[in-house]
Nucleic acid binder design. Structure first.
Lengths: 346, 346
DNA sequence: GTTAGCACTCGGCAGCGTTGAGTGCTAACA
DNA sequence: TGTTAGCACTCAACGCTGCCGAGTGCTAAC
């Protein structure tokens, strides 16, 4: 499909997409000849535009309006025409400075990075913390809250702290708890959560374990603690910035946007999809996803350290997004965060 | 001022406020006589309304529209006329069920409670976690991330977990860290953070401490860890619900609302104000606060256990809020959360 | 293959009168 | 003196109309 376009058509499509990105209004044939030096008359451009419309790259909202690129048009633009510019020094340093503070904890970094991405792009920043099960075990601690209830604190290699409350039938005193955590920390440090889970269930099945009461308790406790997936944390920042975009000027569109951004589950599901991919990923409209993302585009990238711990960050905006700007922002940010994570574990 | 109103004027003011609450539209004299049995003609009601307007309880958006209660009018209504109804069994059980799960950690409870309050009230739920310095020390743990950087995990009596990264010049090995945390946990458990801080600075000043190297390190480490205030966590839920309210139907109002809800700092500052008060607090419009809260009302209450740990929850909505419904919701929820917190520490 | 010209379409906007809800004033009434 | 009916007046909201301009598709000429 991409091959069908000759150079002139490509140029015109590119011009339309770019004009539309900057103006948010249907682009007419005259506007194109005025703004670009094609040495073509509006009439000729119209002919080309009619062809492009037939091919599905453009559509017109009504008879006497200009053309708007379709999702397919944007897709083609991104795949074949888009020239990604480098970030300016100013942008790079703004991004770097946003976590110049080396003593920031991971949560703060993620929140801050979302804000900066949003501020630079004028769209909405999304950051999803590394998944619990993609992290590497570093340390576990138990705190007794009341008789049967234990607070489990889990720290990953990358400094991610998660906690959970579990019911423990046994009444363990502080000393025993300490012994248990010491034992676990010795046994499990450096393993990925998957490995930890495997190891735990394997050991629990070994019969000899039954004779060592403490060890058995340790195993069943940590099993309970690591059992189910902790729900992912997601940071959304800059919703109000995005409301300034003309596509969200109507109350209905605003409501829809806020609803979308408020349903963390949907966002998590979306970001989850790019977990397995490498580099920058682009989702346009509802095209590549079954979920209702109509009208939005999502640009994501993963961040990680060498030891797993994969998180995802990105920017969500209107389909008419300034891709040439947002893509490098997301790309550079993901790299930066990865680097920070690695420096942290050293 | 309140005394100046005779019974008839009170009845009419009450009728206007309630009609306005349910309709969101200016209330006219005929509408009142139609909807209520005052045995008065519209003309008489008009005279009374003119008086109420002069007194500052009502205003009219333009000549030929009905009257709208002013902030002062709402204030009078709440102070003198409002009859708070009890929650229905259904509402009470919905609230109770929202944290029936005993193994929920505090963060999840707060998030869930915000959602439920929002869902019941149709406005936006706000929940602010207990302030770091209002909590009672339970346990502290150190995790080494890289050479000079330590992750400090702090657990309060109420099960609140906070973490922070500090720079530690000294290179301490795991064993020393463990000793330090053991020492601190023995010394500090059960003290409020204020007490902890006092104790630490007092001990640091004692000269004899200097001879005990480990103890000195322990003290300076925990000083660094507890030094500055951790920023409060705040949970905002149900923004999109509130957008359904007619006062936010215009794009400008929507943007303003989202901006307000997105600026966590402002919200924290607002909720902070009710920290010292007891019971349900009501802020109307910008009346009682210097911050721009124009057009919004805020109903808050604190939750706590016996050992301090004061958090704040509430509902923010338009001034034209269904106070008789929202006040008991906020009140009951705060009590419930307090009870849950106390059960947790037992 | 490209271009100029032309008739046609259609959303947006300003102007206009109508409608209806509501007010304030006045005069009459109990 | 307090209450009420009547009346003239105000003003936002709504729908209608006609105009404007941007843009298109088609056709014929270059």
């Amino acid at each position: 499909m991409a091959e069908e376009l000759n150079e002139r058509s490509q140029n015109i499509l590119e011009a339309i997409v770019e004009d539309y990105i900057s103006s948010a209004e249907p682009v007419g044939s005259r506007a194109i000849t005025r703004r670009h030096d094609f040495n073509l008359s509006p009439a000729t451009v119209r002919n080309v535009m009619a062809d492009l419309e037939e091919m599905g790259f453009l559509c017109s909202p009504h008879t006497s309006a200009g053309r708007i690129p379709t999702a397919q048009g944007f897709q083609y633009y991104i795949d074949s025409l888009l020239q990604i510019r480098d970030l300016s020094k100013d942008e790079k340093s703004r991004l770097r400075n946003s976590y110049r503070f080396s003593s920031m904890k991971l949560e703060d970094i993620m929140q801050e990075v979302g804000k900066v991405m949003s501020g630079l792009s004028k769209y909405t920043g999304l950051v999803m913390a590394p998944k619990f099960s993609s992290t590497v075990f570093r340390q576990i601690e138990f705190v007794r809250l009341s008789k049967g209830r234990l607070l489990v604190i889990y720290v990953s290699e990358s400094g991610l702290v998660q906690n959970k409350i579990i019911d423990a039938d046994q009444t363990l005193d502080d000393r025993q708890l300490e012994q248990i955590s010491n034992y676990l920390n010795k046994e499990l440090t450096g393993l990925s959560i998957q490995e930890v889970r495997k190891k735990l269930s394997a050991e629990l099945q070994e019969e000899r374990v039954l004779y060592d009461r403490l060890r058995k308790q340790a195993l069943s406790l940590s099993c309970a603690a690591l059992q189910d997936e902790v729900e992912n944390q997601i940071y959304v920042s800059g919703a109000s910035l995005m409301l300034e975009q003309p596509e969200f000027s109507s109350p209905q569109q605003m409501k829809r946007l806020i609803q979308t951004l408020e349903s963390k589950k949907l966002l998590i599901e979306l970001l989850d999809r790019s977990q397995n991919a490498q580099g920058v990923q682009i989702f346009i409209g509802s095209q590549s996803s079954c979920i209702d993302l109509e009208g939005y585009s999502l640009i994501t990238s993963n961040f990680s350290n060498q030891k797993g711990a994969i998180g995802t960050l990105g920017v969500i905006g209107p389909v008419r997004m300034d891709y040439s700007q947002v893509i490098p922002i997301v790309d550079f940010t993901a790299q930066l965060v990865s680097r920070v994570l690695e420096r942290e574990i050293e």
